[in-house]
């Protein structure tokens, strides 16, 4: 009996020794561990990114759709164990809500105003920058400066420029520099953004600021496009003595059209997400004193519903996504027809 056990263990030991003999061990390492690792190492490299994306990107997508389809969902009620019915009540309620319609109107108005103005100005500036000899670099740098700013901080500067302090008298106690310029040209003071100011004046202030802020990116892209245009086209036009305007409309614009499409599409997307520039100028009240939320936007609406009315916020966010998607599709469709590649 004892002998049997002894020989069994001896055999086992022999087996273990052969197994761990160098070549076998190496073979095991290479074949099993390394190949396995090799097959899965891409996933190991991707692991941190995928884990974070799962938590902070993929789950929110599903959860937003879920919350938007539960009638009157709020996290407070969810914690208390309230059951929600399935339905599209959140969407209909948001669309009927006056505050949301106001937000939608402001967002669309600002986008429709600022995208064409800034694109046109940027195109003009880029073409001019491309056809001058001296100081081109210096001017490019100046035109890029608004990009490297904090939109809240510079919004406060714009507010100081348009601001006025209304005293008790007929004339305001203090007026900002914009009104001084208007007066110098013989105009009257305009109440741009203080208590009692009119809606169109507020919109003008925001349009000026947003265009100022949007110019650098557009100029950069369009100028880059212009500089990569093949000079031969222009030389051919010169040989044919083509007038400047025709050169612009028949050569420059078609060759620039992919960049123009890009700038317009990103402009629309950015416009529909307008928020922080308004907070910069008007503060969190998003409107002149006494008329809070007069300039509220879709993103502002969503942010204020976070933490108390998740169902409404989700519905609004999905509506915003749908609008952006549709507008981008329309843009892509139009640019496919008009764009010259």
């Amino acid at each position: 009996m004892g002998e049997k056990i002894k020989s069994f263990f001896a055999g086992l030991w022999q087996n273990i020794r052969t197994f761990f003999k160098k070549r076998v061990w190496q073979g095991f390492c290479v074949n099993v561990l390394y190949k396995k690792f090799d097959r899965y190492k891409a996933w190991i490299y991707l692991l941190p990114a995928i884990v974070l994306l799962m938590i902070f990107t993929v789950w929110p997508i599903f959860n937003t759709v879920r919350m938007s389809l539960l009638e009157g969902y709020t996290s407070m009620k969810a914690v208390r164990g309230v059951e929600f019915e399935l339905g599209i009540g959140n969407f209909t309620r948001v669309l009927k809500y006056k505050g949301f319609i106001n937000c939608l109107k402001n967002t669309v108005l600002l986008t429709v105003l600022t995208v064409p103005i800034s694109t046109f100005l940027a195109l003009l500036i880029a073409v001019c920058l491309n056809s001058i000899k001296w100081f081109s670099r210096a001017l490019q740098t100046i035109f890029f400066l608004p990009y490297v700013t904090n939109s809240i901080a510079i919004g406060m500067v714009f507010a100081a420029m348009f601001n006025m302090i209304l005293g008790g008298g007929v004339r305001p106690d203090f007026v900002g520099v914009v009104n001084i310029v208007i007066e110098a040209f013989g105009g009257d003071y305009i109440n741009w953004m203080n208590a009692g100011s009119e809606y169109w004046a507020n919109i003008v202030v925001m349009t000026v600021y947003i265009v100022w802020n949007a110019l650098p990116f557009k100029i950069l892209i369009l100028l880059g496009g212009l500089q990569s245009v093949n000079k031969q086209y222009y030389e051919a036009a010169k040989v044919d003595a083509t007038p400047r305007w025709r050169v612009f409309t028949r050569i420059t614009i078609p060759l620039l059209s992919p960049m123009l499409a890009y700038v317009i599409i990103t402009g629309f997307i950015g416009g529909f997400k307008e928020y922080s520039s308004i907070v910069g100028v008007f503060g969190e009240s998003m409107g002149p004193a006494g008329n809070h939320y007069a300039l509220d936007t879709m993103v502002g609406f969503i942010y204020r519903a976070i933490g108390n009315q998740e169902g409404t916020a989700s519905a609004a966010a999905l509506i915003l996504f749908a609008i952006i998607l549709v507008v981008t599709m329309i843009n892509l469709y139009v640019s496919k027809k008009k764009t010259h590649y």
Binding site: I61, Y303, L320
Partner: peptide, 8 residues
Amino acid sequence: PGELFTIT
């Protein structure tokens, strides 16, 4: 849009 993620 990033706002959609922010809620969750």
